[in-house]
Write a protein that binds this DNA or RNA. Structure first.
Lengths: 112, 112
DNA sequence: CACATAGTGTAGTATCGCTAGGTATGAGAG
DNA sequence: CTCTCATACCTAGCGATACTACACTATGTG
């Protein structure tokens, strides 16, 4: 997965993770990693700018807090964020369907 | 689909289309468009450089011909191209699985 | 003759995740 | 007390890659 194959799909992932409950950046990183089964081990330089952008776009909101002396910026999904998530979900479904149609329609030689 | 969400997945699409039989660039464009159900209507500036790159990488081979006064460059899959296609297919499967795990695991409200 | 369709190509742009660096706190090891 | 590691945040610039916008040739049609 090492590649940058998630171009254009990062927002969907981040919104999905935050939809599972408010989280701060570092926690988003870890949640994404574990939820994907270690597939998406994204660096901070990817996560933080993306979260910032999503907040600027009004899809996320954030609150600062201090826990054990460490600053935390906790993000939560806004109403528009929830809408955007739904859109991106269906967009993702369409995308997968379209690629699968091209790739062969038939799933795959069934590993099982 | 308008977006550039296929970043990193274009090679898979092109190799898949060419795997369905040798085609020249213009035909690849059309095959991709129709096979995807109009979802992937990619411009020439995307197709041609990509096909060239795939040939440089040894995944495609090409032969020139002239049909009705028009030059045609017909691409075909090489052995290495076939291997690469298999790899990219399984990479795609993994990618989809990983995203779906994050997005919710459960497919989606089942449109049907 | 103009225009659409077929057919190929490229130079430059824009997008976007990533690299590599910086700041700071707390906990544990030596 | 210092060193290192984990936690926690951030950003400037890079690099990969698809797209825009053009240029060129040829055939057929109005």
């Amino acid at each position: 997965m090492r590649g940058q194959s998630l171009k254009g799909h990062l927002d969907l992932l981040l919104l999905s993770v935050v939809a599972g409950g408010p989280k701060h950046g570092y926690a988003v990183m870890e949640a994404l990693r574990s939820a994907s089964g270690e597939a998406f081990d994204l660096p901070e330089g990817t996560i933080y700018p993306a979260l910032n952008r999503l907040e600027r776009e009004g899809l996320l909101g954030s609150d600062w807090s201090v826990v054990q002396g460490r600053r935390r910026r906790t993000y939560h999904l806004t109403g528009r964020g929830r809408e955007a998530l739904a859109e991106q979900r269906s967009g993702w479904e369409e995308f997968v369907a379209a690629v699968n149609r091209v790739v062969g329609g038939v799933p795959w030689p069934a590993t099982s």
